[in-house]
């Protein structure tokens, strides 16, 4: 479904991603791990159309997205849960969710999507009219995920969804991510919480200094001493 073929992405003059290749099949759950500043956010934002690709090809179902306007990426079925959530804090929870279904193909299913999101995160029901900025961190993350689901994605991009959340809520978040994936949505997950991410992922990529240095199933990656040392805190 998604294919990145030797892509390069720059921030101004600084290259943040070099020669990155990555493939995802429909319905797959793939995770990307790597240290701070490795380029994980840059990668996710490139797939969402927010960062331009300077070399290589980004394609969905074999068609290149390199020249697509950034507001058309959602029509490819790509939806992002960005780092730090980036809710519209002055707008209500419902308005935030509705933004997710702005694109025409999702707008016609708005009501059904909203009900599905509220079934996944029932606590949001009581908060629909509240300004999104007044919610707790965990609830804000639910709104961010809900907003992306409202777009009816085939591919959900999640950038550190557990960042800054209490451990019990992190568990709930991972469970929700697994449920979403089991409903047929492909998930690309960036996580600092490597142990938990590897537990739910079918495959993983390790990104360091803008390059993919390893990929494979979690079982395979966990046999590599370098990865155990760097990401699981083992001596």
């Amino acid at each position: 479904m998604l294919e990145l073929d030797h892509i390069e992405v720059c921030h101004g003059l600084a290259t943040a991603l070099w020669d990155v290749s990555l493939k995802m099949a429909a319905g797959e759950l793939v995770c990307v791990v790597g240290p701070n500043g490795a380029g994980k956010t840059t990668l996710i934002e490139a797939i969402a159309g927010l960062n331009r690709i300077t070399a290589g090809t980004l394609s969905m179902d074999g068609a290149s997205l390199n020249k697509l306007a950034r507001n058309r990426f959602c029509d490819q079925g790509i939806a992002i849960v960005p780092e730090g959530r980036r809710l519209l804090t002055t707008m209500s929870v419902q308005e935030n969710l509705e933004l997710g279904s702005y694109r025409a193909a999702a707008r016609v299913h708005r009501q059904a999507s909203l009900e599905r999101v509220l079934a996944l995160f029932p606590v949001l029901k009581m908060r629909l009219a509240a300004p999104a900025g007044t919610l707790s961190g965990g609830q804000q993350q639910m709104v961010a995920i809900g907003r992306a689901l409202m777009a009816q994605p085939r591919l959900l991009l999640l950038d550190e969804p557990s960042l800054g959340l209490a451990p019990s809520i992190v568990l709930e978040m991972f469970k929700a991510i697994r449920d979403i994936n089991e409903s047929g949505v492909a998930v690309l997950l960036v996580e600092q919480n490597v142990a938990m991410a590897l537990e739910i992922a079918a495959r993983a990529y390790v990104l360091e200094e803008g390059r993919i240095i390893a990929e494979g199933t979690p079982e395979k990656l966990l046999t590599e001493p370098h990865i155990r040392r760097a990401y699981l805190g083992e001596a």
Binding site: A48, G49, L50, A69, R70, N71, R72, F73, C74, D75, A79, I80, P82, R86, L88, T89, T90, M91, E95, E98, L99, G100, Y102, R103, A104, R107, R147, A151
Partner: peptide, 24 residues
């Protein structure tokens, strides 16, 4: 209106609005 809400969204975070289809 959806148009007006999109305008407010784009005023607050143009990138995110664009990611969800708003031609900001």
């Amino acid at each position: 209106t959806d148009l007006g809400k999109a305008m407010r969204a784009a005023a607050e975070d143009p990138q995110i609005a664009a990611a969800f289809g708003v031609n900001e």
